[in-house]
Design a protein around this nucleic acid. Structure first.
Lengths: 238, 238
DNA sequence: ACCCTGGACCTGTATAGACAACTAGCTCCC
DNA sequence: GGGAGCTAGTTGTCTATACAGGTCCAGGGT
């Protein structure tokens, strides 16, 4: 029986910055408040502000120049092999119209199983979303996602019609590593209906965990209709 | 005209740890000196030691457990993204007995469709094999493969009980590049029976093309039972 | 017109001290 | 014998303070 532990102050500072970037108040190239300004406005010590800015810089979110200031980094493209690409781009690049439907968007308390998968304690709050991505009129992906707000804050306030979860996460919690497990299955009824699967149609499930700041930023189950989706991957051995 | 700037002390501490890991003094799972120990032995402040260990943990080199200590992280497997590993090794490494059954092994004439997929002219001769790979008694992969004898000769004479197609091809036609397409489906009856699928069970299909000497060496369809097989892939962006 | 020097402000680093939360092991008491 | 509670050690965080070095600009001297 304990009060929800207040987030560490350096995390609050990071959130302060990340929210302003995600919300558009701070744009690429712009100057973010200096350590001393943060010390005054957020009443934290300079070392705490320093840690926040330093970690954001290490993650590539900010760029720091000694003697000058700290700036929002230019957006960098994260195209690495087997990156499951942004579903919106993927759909648009094939000449279809992209549309997303938000079926759920809320904060949930982690069950034991979920907590283990997300690397948090049981009962911790996680941001949850359930989306369907459409190519023209046909559903192409059901995305069920849990986001750790400690790592990627502000997820629930994202406007998914403009920014896909993928895009949001890349911006807010720079991708360090991703883990994929791919399975084929005939899914439960809920997913079948959302994907409008034919009876007996299979489904490609990609279970994805993304890491940022050395922690799990997000856990996603991506369901795709077997008849209309395939995953391509190229390997260049070295 | 300045003396070579001494490295920051937290960097010296990081090096101290990294050198001991590289040199074998510290092995995976072993405990590294605590912050207080480093404070004493290296005469740095605890915050400096803390920063060094914290950053190494963020990089995945160390694992820290509050109240317990700091440990060298277990070696991360650096599997090539979506490299489909040798199925025999994969089965054996999970503690199962590997067995293969050769269902067909012959030379065939390429149909129009097949010729296109294999990058040869219609009617060209291709080596064909149909194998089932077993883990203990259960089929884990049905492998249907076409090999271009111009690129990888001698395929039909291979002893598959000793050398998997994968191993053979790697030896005969050095792998230059691989192309994968992954699909989920409920397969045709022939595959269902070979994989002993439950009614309505899905199947993970990996369609693989390997390139050698700039040409397509082999085209393979790898069918896996959805309930007993999953594909793992990790991405380390750089 | 040019230089150059100070000061203001910034990041980068280092330290000492403090408190919290957690863990493992020990002791003590029942 | 076993459970409760204490304790030492560990990580995690926060603060106040200090100094070094980089950058930029304004103002003054040449």
């Amino acid at each position: 029986m304990s009060l929800p532990q207040a987030a560490a102050r350096y995390l609050q500072v990071k959130d302060f910055i990340l929210e302003r970037i995600a919300g558009g108040t701070l744009r690429a190239g712009e100057r973010v408040p200096s350590e001393n300004e943060l010390t005054r406005t957020l009443t934290v010590s300079r070392m705490t502000a320093n840690r926040a800015l330093r970690e954001l810089a290490a993650d590539g979110v900010l760029v720091r120049v000694a003697g000058v200031g700290t700036f929002v980094a230019e957006q960098r493209v994260h195209a690495h092999p087997l990156e499951v690409r942004n579903i919106a781009d993927e759909i648009r690049s094939r000449g279809h119209e992209y549309r997303v439907k938000v079926l759920a968007l809320e904060s949930v308390s982690a069950s034991r199983e979920l907590a283990e998968r997300c690397g948090v304690k049981m009962g911790a709050q996680l941001d949850y979303s359930l989306l369907t991505h459409f190519a023209d009129a046909a559903p192409l992906q059901v995305e069920e996602r849990y986001v750790n707000p400690q790592v990627a804050p502000g997820y629930l306030r994202n406007d998914f019609s403009r920014t896909t979860p993928h895009e949001f996460l890349i911006r807010v919690a720079p991708l360090q590593r991703a883990e994929h497990i791919v399975r084929a299955l005939v899914p439960e009824r809920r997913i079948r209906r959302l994907l409008r699967l034919e009876p007996g149609e299979a489904c490609l499930l990609i279970m994805r965990r993304t890491f940022s700041h050395g922690r799990i930023a997000s856990v996603a189950d991506l369901y795709h209709p077997g008849s209309r989706y395939e995953l391509a991957a190229n390997c260049q051995p070295r």
